[in-house]
Design a protein around this nucleic acid. Sequence first.
DNA 1: TCTGTATTCAACCAATCAGTTGTGTAGAGG
DNA 2: CCTCTACACAACTGATTGGTTGAATACAGA
Lengths: 130, 130
Amino acid sequence: MTIVAAVAEDQLSQVFAALADPVRRDLVARLADGDATVTELSAPYDISLQAVSKHLKVLGAAGLVSRTKEAQRRPVHLEADVFQLATVWLERYRRRAEERYARLDDVLAELTDAPPTDPAPPTTTEKESS
Amino acid sequence: MTIVAAVAEDQLSQVFAALADPVRRDLVARLADGDATVTELSAPYDISLQAVSKHLKVLGAAGLVSRTKEAQRRPVHLEADVFQLATVWLERYRRRAEERYARLDDVLAELTDAPPTDPAPPTTTEKESS
DNA sequence: TCTGTATTCAACCAATCAGTTGTGTAGAGG
DNA sequence: CCTCTACACAACTGATTGGTTGAATACAGA
């Protein structure tokens, strides 16, 4: 279980890191409309083809794209499944935060609470990070 | 519109980059359960408090957290809204890719199509990146 | 006022990253 | 066979990043 979680953690890092670059997001956006080769993908940018190839390698390492050998060209294919990994993570904590925000007692605590003797009731006591 | 889009693009980059780090994701996970101070947040890690402060700065720049001045401590608060920015982007292209995958003619095209004279109809012709 | 606590700022360092250019390799076509 | 095309690999460079330590700032309490 720990190993699985660690691997997932690592892939999550790679997915987010991959999508942190505007060029790579643009590549993903274009690949969502259909597979394409490196040369086709690199055409719109003024960076070198090798640079785009590197970007695709990053996306590939994150599991966001796959390559298929087809003659001498290697079309890039978007793997939509991996997106859910990130979405699930995001939604999980967004929902948690919003739930907490919705609870009135917590809201009131944030508004009225500021006792120097009792610093922060909600967080310090429990910790259940990863 | 272009400026707005550019800003959004930039924030999206920052959000994804912020979440690409496991420590920062862990911080977010813990902040989802409630606000906390830097000292509290840094406790579980064996890195310095200053390092955690830096991480929070990154999260803050991405708009994922906010700080409120409260005496000499500055509790960190998770901003759940920004999560949707990322989620919307992810879902947009995941859905696009899956729609395309579901259409049978496209699937067939991928299987039977491989004409060297006509490289790739779907992508090269149009571009609507940023 | 002096002290302790909470936090940031600044300078530094090693590692990673995005880009480059140059070279190598695999397959299709003359 | 030779050449073009499509791509990957390797080495280099400048910028960014995650970490450190040391000092500065802000405020609460004795």
